[in-house]
Computed example of a mutant assay.
Amino acid sequence: MSDITVTKVKQVGVLPTDKELGFGTIFTDHMFVMDYTTGKGWHSPRIVPYAECANYPAMIVFHYGQAIFEGMKAFRTEDNRICVFRPYEYLNRFNRSAEKLCIPKMDVEQIHDALFQLLALEKNWVPGQLGTSLYIRPFVVADEPHLGVKVADSFKLYIILSPVGAYYKTGFNPVSIKVEDKYVRAIKGGLGEAKTPANYAMSLAAQQDAYAEGFGQVLWLDAVHRKYIEEVGTMNILFKINGEIITPELNGSILGGITRKTVLELSRSWGLKTTERQISIDEVYDAYAKGQLDEVFGSGTAAVISPVGELSWKGQRIVINHNQTGPYAQKLFDYITGVQSGKIADQFGWMEEVR
Rank of each mutant, 00 (worst) to 15 (best):
I4L: 11
I4P: 00
T5Q: 13
T5G: 03
K10R: 14
Q11H: 13
D18F: 02
D18A: 15
E20V: 14
L21I: 12
L21F: 07
G22I: 02
G22C: 05
I26P: 02
F27A: 09
F27H: 09
H30W: 07
F32L: 15
V33Q: 09
K40N: 13
P45L: 13
R46L: 03
V48I: 15
V48A: 10
Y50Q: 01
A54K: 15
N55I: 14
N55T: 15
A58C: 12
A58D: 15
V61S: 15
Q66P: 11
E70S: 07
E70Y: 08
G71M: 11
G71L: 12
R76K: 15
D79S: 14
D79K: 11
Y88R: 15
E89K: 12
N92S: 02
F94G: 00
S97A: 04
E99L: 13
K100V: 10
C102R: 09
I103M: 06
M106V: 14
E109R: 12
Q110E: 14
I111W: 01
H112W: 07
L115G: 03
L115T: 15
V126F: 00
G128F: 10
G131Y: 00
Y135M: 04
Y135N: 11
R137F: 01
A142L: 00
A142D: 04
D143Y: 01
H146D: 12
A152T: 06
F155E: 02
L157D: 04
Y158I: 10
Y158W: 12
I160Y: 03
I160D: 01
L161M: 08
G165Q: 09
G165P: 06
T170C: 06
T170F: 03
G171P: 08
N173P: 00
V175D: 03
V179F: 02
I187N: 06
I187C: 11
G190E: 02
L191S: 14
G192R: 01
G192P: 02
G192M: 08
K195E: 00
K195D: 01
A206R: 08
D209N: 15
Y211V: 10
K227T: 11
I229C: 05
E231D: 08
E231C: 04
V232Q: 08
T234R: 05
L238V: 06
N242Q: 11
G243V: 02
E244W: 00
I254A: 01
L255E: 00
G256E: 15
I258L: 07
T262C: 09
V263Q: 01
R268C: 05
E276S: 12
E276Q: 13
A287L: 02
G298V: 01
S299V: 09
G300V: 11
A302G: 06
A303G: 03
P307M: 00
V308K: 01
G309M: 13
E310W: 00
S312H: 02
S312M: 14
W313E: 05
Q316E: 14
I318A: 07
V319G: 08
V319H: 08
N321K: 09
N323E: 14
T325R: 10
P327G: 04
Q330R: 15
Q330C: 12
K331F: 05
F333L: 10
F333A: 01
I336E: 09
T337L: 02
Q340L: 10
G342I: 10
G349Q: 11
W350L: 09
W350A: 03
W350N: 12
E352I: 11
V354F: 04
